[in-house]
């Protein structure tokens, strides 16, 4: 599945930080995404899964180049092999790369749905719009409604439609399914799958790990603003042994069907990131090295992982058993 020539989007060492002023003039940088790696190939759905506050939505903004003005971006994003510059992002937004936003508040409250589905580009895709509405089971009068007249589920389907109406090659769906009924969610995911099968790609940002496992080809596990592991979705079905990173394993063990065991501690806040590995403070296998340096990304068993344990054979490690 991992053929280099079909790579659509490549993100290397992406860091995003916000300039903040605290106590008047004291300036601090709040790092929200740290050295993130992600590759997305044509034909696949990549889920970006992580808990709230891990910076998933900001990743979408960074790819589209719509971060707020006080944000600084470091690292590289390549789209179709070429560096994604600000000018190129501007060109590709809404044509090549489309976003499915999180909630109905992303729709203009005073504009009818029809006009919002059509977008500002001409000619209007009237036929396509009709088909999408039909597939999603949206009433025929939906284009004449205002956002506040939509139910939660209708709004979600409209949001997904705004992206599917374009001819985008890459779709970034930010929590697209909550609020939809199971059937509607499945229909949306089927549409995503169809897109992928047409040679396009979908990034599915979600906190629903079950959904990610069930529908994505690969799952990137997000923790404190970085991807700690990217694994084929099948690894999650094969149990925690098939997984690589201690956080991913802990996540797997915390799922209701796998024992429902939580781990201690909480995700570090953006202003208080640890020096070394971002997961080290909670990691049961942490070493001194983990506390001091962030590990590089490694390819392990067909996935990518950011953990020191894959630098050395397991038994040589000086193991600290944390609380």
């Amino acid at each position: 599945m991992e053929q280099k020539d079909t790579t659509l989007l490549e993100i290397h060492d992406l860091s995003v930080s916000f300039r903040m002023y605290e106590h008047g003039l004291k300036q601090t940088d709040l790092q929200v995404i740290s050295e993130l790696h992600l590759t997305v190939s044509r034909g696949e759905i990549v889920a970006v899964a992580g808990s709230s506050g891990s910076g998933k939505s900001l990743l979408a903004s960074a790819i589209l180049g719509i971060l707020p003005e006080n944000a600084t971006v470091r690292g590289h994003i390549h789209y179709q092999g070429e560096e994604l510059t600000a000018a190129r992002q501007e060109q590709l937004r809404g044509t090549e790369i489309a976003l499915v936003p999180q909630s109905v508040s992303f729709l203009d409250p005073l504009m009818k749905i029809g006009a919002q589905l059509d977008g500002h580009r001409r000619p209007r895709q009237t036929e396509k719009r009709k088909n999408l509405l039909r597939r999603f089971g949206l009433p025929e009068k939906t284009p004449q409604l205002y956002p506040f007249q939509l139910s939660g589920g209708m709004a979600r389907r409209v949001l997904v439609s705004t992206a599917l109406i374009t001819d985008a090659q890459l779709l970034i769906a930010d929590e697209p399914t909550p609020g939809m009924s199971l059937e509607q969610a499945l229909e949306a995911l089927r549409l995503f799958r169809e897109m992928a099968d047409e040679g396009k790609a979908v990034i599915l940002i979600t906190h629903d790990i079950d959904l990610a496992i069930a529908f994505a080809d690969r799952v990137a596990v997000f923790y404190a603003g970085t991807t700690v592991e990217t694994a084929p979705a099948s690894d999650f079905q094969n149990g925690s042994k098939a997984l690589r990173h201690p956080y991913t394993k802990a996540l797997w063990n915390a799922l209701p069907q796998n024992g429902f065991q939580p781990i201690e501690g909480f995700q570090p806040y953006a202003g208080a990131l640890p020096n070394g590995c971002l997961f080290a403070p909670r990691c049961p296998y942490k070493t001194r090295q983990c506390m001091e340096n962030n590990p590089p990304i490694r390819e392990v068993r067909g996935g990518e992982v950011r953990c020191w344990q894959f630098e050395h054979p397991c038994d040589e490690r000086e193991v600290y058993h944390g609380t």
Partner: peptide, 13 residues
């Protein structure tokens, strides 16, 4: 600074 303008920007407006 609203979300719907952010989305409009995301759509290339």
């Amino acid at each position: 600074s609203s979300e719907y303008v952010l989305f409009a920007r995301a759509r290339g407006e």
